[in-house]
Design a binder for these strands. Structure first.
Length: 516
RNA sequence: GGCAGCGUAGCUCAGUGGUAGAGCAGGGGAAUCAUAAUCCCUUGGUCGGGGGUUCAAAUCCCUCCGCUGCUACCA
């Protein structure tokens, strides 16, 4: 069982019919930061994202576009692959549910469930909305003047009866509760755990897991009249990507997943249906599911009708990539809903990045460039103040690790910025510009301590801001092999006399364009 | 309706029994290495209303008001 520690984390697979927006970018960003962190911390990481490409809506959209569904999904799934490069995500795989490996995986899972007697053929009847791809209860519907039943979403419903396979979800209620109780960290944040548990305790009905009303899906093995329910299809992507139905190799290495990151709207699928499917197939459930919140835009709900949906590309163009990545994870306690506003974004860019972090780096590297011959200065004996600052820097990984592993990205950043503040205070207290005249040797020590502190900060901000952190490490002449967490601490300390490149700003201030 | 949660400084929030806190914003000062960036000091709250328990309550209990989430097949 030796070998590197592994960490497998996933985003939801995104429905190709959607246009990528800030919400998609946010989910994958959180995973990306976690994945980068774990890699730097020495883990063998597998980070998966992808697209969900089946379902009636895709079938219709393809029809409207006058092309085959596969050609349609080939085209629109590209939007999400473009998002990967735009946002600088480091995913190790990108899965599409239309790939042969996935079809084989889902059909194999189906067969296992069927063999184990967890699936049976029955029939489903109810009020169905094509637009919503959903059934509604009688009590949820209203009747319009034309006599049509209308769903709460405003969509028209029709009475549908169809044969359907069912998954015996009702049999899993007690085992799910037992699982939640044995694994208190399975559902996060904690408040969501209570919601899921009360839902399960209120009683579970068997789940319809096939459809006959449309064709664009994975056929049920042995009965081509049926295609599989979208969620059985979609959720299984997490095991497809590690090689299922082959349970050796990557599956043995990475499964169960360490984390499924999801938006709060799809929590139930991941914390009720998915563990039930897996346990029914004798496979272990994932270790944790985290449901994050939604963004509002300038205080308003994001919606197509309001026309305020933010494209990730416009954020990156306007504010910069690393600035955007930083803002999304710093502004809001991860798990809560948050508000995106231009004012707050600018406040973060100018306050935290340009003034606090960027300026600390710049003032220190500039002084080293001008006063130390453009090389890492030679330190003398350390004072109490030196040890205090270095100690804070050395200690930072332990603090940040705890927060990141709990998906408390905002707290991790708070901790890093506390040391940024310590650094700026230390500069003012030590006043190296005065030491330059009175005690040049002491000045060299002070600047060395600062450079070493900045090295720690830059290594630790890599997961959040890969490009900017790399630029800082470049300016400290730290090569690719010197950037892992193993290089933190005195063992990886800067070597006096190492030549340094000319310094340059990393986080420019955001200056408002004059209004026309 | 039922269940759960929230309501603390202008803003965003931390604090769950022992003399009200942070960041930002506002005010004053210092410094001048730096992206006019930094540092120090400071104004500001009857902790949603009312009642109760306690030597002591933002923190526990009751009640009222306001807001939010969940209450099954809606990526």
């Amino acid at each position: 069982m030796a070998g590197p520690k592994t960490f497998y984390l996933t985003t939801p697979i995104y429905y190709v019919n959607d246009v990528p927006h800030i919400g998609h970018a946010y989910t994958t960003l959180a995973c990306d930061v976690l994945a980068r962190f774990m890699r730097l911390d020495g883990y063998d990481v597998k980070f998966l994202t992808g697209t969900d490409e089946h379902g009636q809506k895709v079938e219709k959209s393809a029809q409207n576009a006058g092309i085959e569904p596969q050609a349609f999904t080939d085209r629109v799934s590209q939007n999400f692959r473009d998002l990967v490069s735009l946002m600088n995500y480091s995913n190790d795989d990108f899965i599409r549910t239309t790939e042969p490996r996935h079809v084989a995986s889902v059909q194999a899972l189906w067969k296992v469930l069927e063999e184990k007697g967890e699936i049976y053929l029955g029939s489903y009847a109810g009020w169905y909305s094509v637009r919503d791809e959903a059934f509604y209860g009688e009590d949820e519907l209203t009747t319009n003047p034309a006599g049509k039943k209308i769903a709460p979403t405003g969509a028209e419903c029709e009475w549908v009866e169809e044969p359907s396979y069912f998954f015996k979800l009702s049999a899993w209620q007690d085992r799910l509760i037992a699982f939640y109780e044995a694994n208190p960290d399975f559902i996060a944040p904690a408040g969501k755990r209570n919601e899921v548990m009360s839902f399960v305790k209120s009683g579970l009905k068997d789940l319809s897991v096939s459809r006959t009303t449309f064709k664009w899906g994975i056929p049920v093995p042995g009965n081509d009249e049926h295609i599989m329910y979208v969620w059985l299809d979609a959720l299984a992507n997490y095991i497809t990507a590690v090689g299922y139905p082959n349970t050796e190799g990557d599956f043995a290495k990475y499964w169960p997943a360490d984390l499924h990151m999801v938006g709060k709207d799809i929590l139930r699928f991941h914390t009720v249906y998915w563990p039930a499917f897996l346990m029914a197939a004798d496979l272990p459930p994932p270790k944790r599911v985290f449901a994050h919140g939604w963004w509002t835009i300038e205080g308003q709900k994001m919606s197509k009708s309001l026309g305020n949906v933010i494209a990730p590309e416009s954020l990156v163009t306007t504010y910069g990539l690393d600035q955007t990545r930083y803002f999304l994870l710093r502004e809001v306690p991860f798990g809560n809903d948050g508000d995106f506003s231009h004012k707050q974004m600018v406040a973060r860019i100018n306050g935290n990045l340009a003034n606090d972090y960027g300026n600390l780096v710049q003032r220190v590297l500039s002084m080293i460039g001008k006063n130390c011959g453009g090389a890492v200065p030679t330190p003398g004996p350390f004072t109490e103040a030196d040890d205090a600052l270095l100690g804070a820097a050395h200690n930072l990984l332990d603090v940040v690790r705890v927060e990141i592993r709990a998906q408390a990205f905002h707290k991790a950043l708070d901790a890093i910025w506390a040391v940024v503040g310590d650094g700026n205070r230390y500069v003012d207290e030590q006043a190296p510009w005065t030491l330059k005249k009175t005690d040049p040797a002491r000045m060299a020590t002070v600047l060395y301590v600062l450079a070493e502190t900045i090295r720690h900060l830059a290594i630790l901000t890599q997961p959040i801001m890969p490009d900017a952190s790399a630029k800082i490490l470049d300016q400290l002449a730290q090569g690719p092999d010197a950037r892992g967490f193993g290089n933190l601490g005195p063992a990886g300390a800067l070597v006096a006399g190492t030549p340094l490149p000319t310094s340059q700003g990393v986080f420019p201030r955001f200056v408002e364009e004059p209004k026309a």
